[in-house]
């Protein structure tokens, strides 16, 4: 099979984290199945993003709540 010419695009990239945090994670993964700090950080970030996305989806509000907050925002001068 012919190989593609040129630089192969990596699936990974580098991010910086504070050294004390790195050390803290390194210590923590000793009690887990994670084999590297990168794997642990990837896991935590995926969890955080999923939780943010989940909460965005769940943010349904009733008409009554919307009316109530509109009224308050008017009283505070934010809305005409």
């Amino acid at each position: 099979m012919a190989e593609k010419k040129g630089k192969k695009k990596s699936k990974y990239t580098t991010v910086s984290i504070p050294t004390p945090l790195y050390k803290k994670i390194k210590k923590r993964i000793e009690e887990t199945g994670f084999t590297s700090v990168s794997d642990y950080v990837t896991y935590v970030l995926r969890e955080v993003l999923a939780s943010l996305e989940e909460e965005e989806k769940e943010e349904a509000f009733t008409e009554e709540e919307e009316e109530k907050v509109k009224e308050r925002l008017r009283a505070l001068g934010y809305l005409d």
Partner: peptide, 8 residues
């Protein structure tokens, strides 16, 4: 909180 919103 006022539901999903915020009041002072």
């Amino acid at each position: 909180a006022v539901g999903a919103f915020g009041d002072h």
